[in-house]
């Protein structure tokens, strides 16, 4: 039997907006620089100074958002820890690679290597929480977080787990940002690149939930017809005829944004189109922030005006549902439906 009552119990973030807070809903920080690093909270509450010295930023942020998300979910333990990360612990990877390429193969120390793999994040959270449950890590470009979300969603529906901590974590160093720009990895002219640390707790009990997760679909290079069919099926399964708003990941790269918006309009007509990357920046796990933004809008009962793409239509009274429409690199797609 498939259980379709899956809830989002909490969602926490550390990003280029104020950390571990929803200040961005009323007083967003605006940036003009092309690349900004996250605003970090004081990590002392989450990790001892001795441990913190050996940890990269991505790990400290993951511990902080994970601990806050679990606290807010009011669960004592979670049954699964699942992380999405496009590049993994890139700062340590760079340190090791840099030493390898510049100093050769004789004097390399294990410290950076030990914390360079993608699954270091999920493992560290499990070690700190002494959690022996299901543990996995996804690394698939702009749908890394979405892949982790899907894994949790499948297992909750199958009844294999009752709760899951799902994370989306990517860090960005100035040197790696320069390399990515040279490779046009996020596109040619992305307005703002940031970092992302998001932790959400999913469960099968509705108490104190921010919202409900009603549908998820991952697609690769779909045609518009494929997209239409999947959106219609998802809405139909949820008993909906239309959505209140669509949250997109347009990022300022004009050529891509134009195609993205055209596709969005072809699918959703005149429904209000929202964006979030102008506030949070681009990263491989930015879509985790989209999930966080959508969940908090439904919970707060309003959509901040700065999220609307068109300033002519900036009011959705008490939104009951939001569809998260992630289109990454023009080929990796996810559709996620969340409802009040």
């Amino acid at each position: 039997m498939i259980n379709n009552k899956i809830y989002v119990l909490s969602a926490k973030q550390i990003s280029i907006q104020n950390p571990l807070s929803e200040d961005w809903m009323t007083t967003p920080i605006e940036y003009t620089e092309p690349f900004v690093r996250s605003i970090d909270p004081n990590f002392k509450e989450y990790v001892s100074p001795i441990e913190a010295r050996r940890m990269g930023k991505i790990l400290k942020r993951a511990l902080a958002t994970s601990k806050e998300a679990i606290k807010a979910s009011q669960l004592d333990v979670v049954d699964a820890i699942i992380t999405g990360t496009g590049f993994g612990c890139i700062e340590n990877t760079e340190f090791f690679l840099d030493a390898l390429c510049k100093e050769g193969e004789q004097l390399l120390k294990p410290t950076y290597f030990m914390q360079s793999t993608h699954n270091t994040i999920s493992s560290l959270v499990a070690i700190q929480m002494k959690n022996h449950g299901y543990n996995a890590t996804y690394a698939h470009k702009g749908i890394s977080f979405d892949s982790a979300l899907q894994d949790a969603w499948l297992q909750l529906r199958l009844g294999k787990i009752d709760s899951a901590l799902v994370g989306g974590h990517d860090e960005m160093t100035p040197s790696f940002f320069t390399i990515l720009q040279k490779g046009e990895v996020f596109g040619k002219q992305v307005t703002l690149t940031g970092e992302a640390a998001v932790s959400v707790v999913l469960g099968n009990k509705a108490d104190n939930a921010l919202c409900r997760l009603s549908g998820f679909k991952m697609l690769y290079k779909p045609t518009l017809e494929d997209l239409k069919a999947n959106v219609n099926l998802m809405l139909h399964s949820a008993g909906l005829s239309e959505v209140d708003a669509v949250l997109t990941g347009i990022n300022g790269d004009e050529a891509c944004d134009q195609a993205y918006l055209e596709e969005t309009r072809a699918l959703f007509g005149e429904k209000p189109i929202l964006r979030y990357k102008h506030l949070f920046g681009e990263s491989f796990t930015a879509s985790g922030l989209a999930f966080y933004v959508g969940a908090h809008c439904l919970n707060a009962g309003f959509i901040p005006s700065q999220l609307f793409v068109s300033q002519q239509n900036i009011s959705v009274e008490k939104p009951k549902n939001i569809l998260l429409f992630n289109r990454s690199d023009g080929k990796d797609y996810t559709i996620t439906l969340i409802e009040k």
């Binding site: 543990n135 996995a136 890590t137 996804y138 698939h140 892949s147 991952m218």
Partner: peptide, 18 residues
Amino acid sequence: EMTADHFGKFAFATTLST
């Protein structure tokens, strides 16, 4: 994706890294 694309267009593609 490079591996998959050599053969055609799959319905979805994702990557585990554990």
